[in-house]
């Protein structure tokens, strides 16, 4: 299933946030959205997932979601959004219960996603007992449980320390390599973008417009930590973003 954005514009009151965004998200690829803070990345992601109505334009699902897909557009949030009163297992089971999946079938799915995210030993733990990285892995496991067509990830690693971030990036690459998933991955971290993105979309400062779309052909599994091939791309991205970021920064101070 592909996602197509057609001329999306959005404003909150008098502030224009997004302007004329047209973009294709092909199945099986990771599209990274980068841009200075406040440029409307989260807003765009909410619009893609149907949590917000765009002021103009529309979001299309092209083709049918894969078989057994319970929730085609599934989020992974920056703040994890785990229910603190449910265990790891209970948090995953939450999203299955409404689809009438219980008992043995639910157990199979939960065991599978917990194994894929290396959480099998923590199935009975409460969120308060987990580190930030583990909480985000639970959120990823929960997203995988509904077998999504597209994963919408809003700065999923930004609340984590840099070592944990590296580890989780490796985990995400391993997950994708095992079974390619489609994802829109919002980040302000260019190293994450060049590591995980097949296609990187650079947005301007508010109102967010598409500045440039950069394709990286190197397969995810071959991209390494501090990969010299990626450095050039990252430098190019930074050049694109630097002035925008500075202007956005000063804009925030002006307000």
């Amino acid at each position: 299933m592909d996602i197509r954005l057609e001329a999306i514009s959005h404003a909150y009151g008098d502030t224009d946030v997004l302007e004329d965004i047209t973009l294709d998200i092909p199945a099986g690829r990771i599209v990274c959205l980068v841009g200075p803070s406040g440029c409307g990345k989260s807003t765009l992601l909410r619009i893609i997932g149907g949590l917000e109505r765009p002021g103009a334009g529309r979001v299309l699902q092209v083709g049918a979601p894969p078989e057994g897909c319970l929730n085609p557009l599934t989020y992974v949030f920056q703040d994890f959004a785990l229910l603190p009163w449910r265990t790891v297992r209970g948090n995953v089971s939450l999203v299955l219960e409404d689809h009438g999946i219980r008992r043995a079938r639910a157990r199979d799915i939960i065991d599978d996603v917990l194994a894929r995210t290396k959480l099998s030993d923590f199935a009975g733990a409460l969120p308060k007992q987990l580190s930030g990285g583990m909480k985000q892995r639970v959120a990823i496991a929960r997203a995988l449980a509904v077998n999504p067509a597209v994963m919408l990830m809003d700065e999923p690693l930004s609340a984590l320390d840099s070592q944990t971030r590296e580890l989780l990036m490796d985990d995400l690459i391993a997950l994708w390599t095992r079974q390619p998933f489609t994802s829109v991955y919002v980040t302000h971290n260019l190293a994450e973008a060049v590591r995980l993105g097949h296609r990187i979309v650079v947005l301007s400062r508010r109102p967010g417009r598409i500045c440039e779309v950069v394709e990286i052909d190197k397969p995810l599994a071959e991209r390494l930590y501090a990969d010299p091939d990626l450095d050039d791309v990252q430098r190019h991205l930074w050049e694109l973003m630097r002035d925008e970021a500075r202007a956005a920064e000063e804009e925030l101070i002006d307000v």
């Binding site: 997932g49 949590l51 319970l70 929730n71 557009l73 599934t74 989020y75 949030f77 703040d79 959004a81 229910l83 939450l94 999203v95 219960e97 409404d98 929960r142 509904v146």
Partner: peptide, 16 residues
């Protein structure tokens, strides 16, 4: 609110 938004994003019913 972010937990409620999470519930909506997974298509949970209002009652759930």
């Amino acid at each position: 609110r972010s937990l409620i938004r999470m519930g909506q994003s997974f298509g949970l019913s209002w009652l759930s």
